[in-house]
Design a protein around this nucleic acid. Structure first.
Lengths: 206, 206
DNA sequence: TAGATTGTTAATCGATTAACAATC
DNA sequence: TAGATTGTTAATCGATTAACAATC
């Protein structure tokens, strides 16, 4: 399978997201120029990205939205469903369990984990909460693909270790700390504090 | 003021975050090699980044953690406090209002906005919730720097317009849609769906 | 002195952009 | 045919990395 850069993959999903909106609004044609406006990118970059996935447009006309969407999804998702587990059912973890946009997509939260006896055994948005110690078994049984770290900073590494032990290869880390994992495990860090500070910094340097 | 790339700024905050942990643990010296291990970057890149901010290390020895931390903070933050307003007090918005890590830092949420009469007038974590129509006044009075979009997708552009009208120059956008704003307004998009799909895609392309 | 580590230059690598022939 | 737009090549730009003299 051809390798795409992280940036190309991210943009591909941005195109898919935009195309879905266009399809919902009954637009069946779109040009790279229009996509550029809708995504905030340049038309050249969009054409370049799309050409990675094959020839799908018509010169002088543009792209068929449904066709382009299918082509992109086929290449980078292969129509699979992604199974997700959330570690730490605090404010953020609970918000993720209830996040409405996952239900529209191929993303499926299959389990939550927490050590608080008040939460274990309950269901949040019909997702069962297990004790963290049960993670390896539950993850294997549910074929979980991606784990989300929503525990406090000081437990982040511990939870990451359990994830790795359970065989997860993808971790979305919301804790404000770097976690150490083997090379074959991919981590995406989302640190709200850094996101905001970085934004603020860019405003002030202008 | 010298311009730094978005990537450099983000890494600078990662260094600050790491240095703070080291300082808390009473480490007063650190080498670029050790920082590399702690951040997952390379030592060369770290030295290169740090050199943007001036000479602060000692050859053969390393960096004084407190001194380096101060230098970085001085350059990119100038010791300012950042005032934040959250639009949309649903599951995610409420979780952000309660996010514990902001309280440790210079980030200060000053207001929430929602149109639900059950929420307006209440306080979440001692932060008052206002009706969205009051945003321009509240934002000016509280000197808000950054607005966070946590409303459903279909209201995102509308809320972004109000933010721009209110004079905000930085927007953290959690809604899964591209918002259109003037050139002098910076937007950071965090789309949970794209983050997870992109991670999953990278696993599968390996 | 020997070993360690910084700061910096030059080389490499990868990503974006400009330009345009081909096509509808 | 004239106008619009794709797909692609070559040029540019920027970011990362390798290498090493200077320094402690």
């Amino acid at each position: 399978m051809k390798k795409f850069s992280k940036k190309t993959i991210n943009r591909a999903f941005l195109y898919i997201r935009t195309l879905e909106q266009l399809i919902n609004n009954k637009h069946n044609l779109v040009s790279s120029g229009q996509l550029a406006k809708l995504t905030g990118l340049t038309s050249t970059q969009i054409r370049k990205d799309i050409s990675n996935f094959g020839k799908v447009g018509t010169p002088g006309i543009g792209y068929n939205t449904e066709e382009l969407n299918e082509k992109l999804e086929l290449f980078i998702l292969q129509k699979q469903v992604v199974h997700i587990a959330v570690f730490g059912i605090g404010n953020l973890g609970a918000a993720i369990l209830k996040y409405p946009n996952f239900q529209k997509t191929k993303l499926n939260i299959v389990a939550g984990f927490d050590n608080d006896p008040k939460k274990v055994g309950k269901k949040f948005n019909s997702i069962p909460i297990h004790p963290i110690v049960n993670a390896p078994g539950v993850i294997k049984k549910t074929h979980t693909d991606i784990g989300i770290i929503a525990v406090p900073q000081k437990f982040a590494q511990e939870v990451a270790d359990i994830m790795v032990l359970s065989g997860l290869k993808g971790i979305l880390n919301f804790s404000p700390t770097t976690i150490n994992v083997p090379n074959d495990v991919f981590v995406k860090d989302i640190d709200f504090t850094i996101s905001i500070l970085s934004l603020f910094c860019r405003i002030n340097l202008t």
